[in-house]
């Protein structure tokens, strides 16, 4: 292998690693705040990418219909809970009103926007923003419907619920997007040569977006009050509740961010290869391997793990492409062995 090949593979690996980093961040975020292993992450990859593809081809993004349906379901859950608890506390009218705005009026607004604006002529950034405006609330609604009612359950129960949500979203994905994948327009056709290496603008965009998101998350967790509340919930749930942090607010925030990061990852890979409704799962699993490297707790370690997974994937594709997936997923075994040897048994539950 000469230097040129080595550099091309490195570029390829880092680009893939940047996508895995976003997914690993989201997984760590959701797990540390809510203890949910966020399997449906993969579906958000498909939802985000396919919605942008639909917007670009001038089709009505059918995700809006799903958003309206799930919104209505969420409102029903809120209303049902309020009525059920009527014996113990008065019906929280203000809360219900907010819920109606969030879950009924907002999806309707998105529907109006989807119908009235010719999205295919808009700049790509606007299309992406509009797709995120659909997937992020969807993540929050899923948290409200599936996970919030059992926030105190054990990790295993939450995992089983996550598996259920994963399959439900997979089936819905097939129903609303159809079985075939799509690609989106590339972000840029620009490319430059550094030495013998061709650097594509596409991979620079992916890496830049990923770095900006990691930086933004760092600032958010370190500087803002909301971010600190999330961290407090992650460190100690009971303690956070005692000092007046709303843990369900934190959960909503975590799921919203995770859904956003997941669909952003989907948007980033869509110009490179076709993304179908079921593509995301394997990609998200690689993000999961990266998150495991970080022990599902550390953001910098997870980012490093993502780079490792990306590079390992790229080099093993070159040397032994038939065993590439085996090599990438086998990485998890030495990592787990090393972690369990070094961390002892103090961190159960």
């Amino acid at each position: 292998m000469d230097m040129g090949v080595f550099a091309v593979l490195a570029q390829d690996g880092i680009t893939n690693g940047a996508v895995y980093a976003l997914l690993a961040m989201a997984l760590v975020l959701v797990f540390s705040v809510t203890r949910v292993i966020f399997l449906p992450q993969g579906e958000f990859i498909g939802y985000g990418a396919l919605t942008v593809a639909a917007l670009q081809s001038g089709q009505y993004p059918r995700l809006v219909s799903l958003l309206m349906a799930v919104g209505a379901l969420t409102f029903c859950v809120e209303l049902g809970t309020a009525l059920y608890n009527k014996r113990y506390k008065p019906v929280p009218k203000l809360h219900l009103m907010w819920s109606a705005i969030e879950n009924l009026a907002y999806p309707a607004l998105i529907w109006v926007l989807a119908r009235s604006i010719g999205w295919q002529d808009m700049p790509m950034a606007a299309q992406i923003a509009f797709a995120l405006a659909m997937t992020i609330p969807l993540g929050i609604m899923i948290y409200r419907v599936a996970f919030q009612p059992m926030a105190e359950a054990s990790v295993l129960v939450l995992l089983i619920v996550a598996v259920g949500v994963h399959f439900a979203m997979l089936g819905l994905g097939l129903f609303i997007f159809g079985p075939e994948g799509s690609t989106t327009r590339s972000f840029t056709e620009w490319s430059t040569e550094i030495g013998a290496m061709l650097v594509s603008g596409q991979s620079l965009v992916v890496i830049a977006v990923s770095l900006v998101m990691i930086g933004a998350l760092y600032v958010f967790f370190d500087r803002s009050l909301y971010g600190k509340a999330l961290r407090a919930t992650a460190v100690n749930r009971k303690g956070a509740q005692l000092v007046g942090i709303g843990t369900s607010q934190a959960g909503r925030m975590a799921f919203g961010l995770a859904a956003g990061l997941g669909s952003l990852a989907g948007v980033l890979i869509a110009p490179l290869n076709t993304v179908g409704y079921d593509t995301g799962f394997v990609v998200a699993l690689k993000g999961f391997v990266a998150a495991i490297v970080g022990g599902l707790a550390s953001y910098p370690l997870a980012a490093a793990g993502a780079a490792l997974v990306g590079l390992l994937e790229s080099y093993s594709s070159f040397w032994a492409s038939a065993y590439k997936e085996v090599i990438v997923f086998t990485l998890i075994i030495p990592v787990l062995a090393w972690r369990s040897l070094t961390s002892g048994h103090g961190d159960e539950e």
Binding site: V8, T15, N16, L272, N273, F281
Partner: peptide, 17 residues
């Protein structure tokens, strides 16, 4: 002889080889 998976985002390495 090179292989890749359905969900791969890149086959650059295989293409190089």
């Amino acid at each position: 002889v090179e292989r890749y998976a359905r969900s791969d985002q890149s086959v650059t390495a295989q293409a190089l080889k």
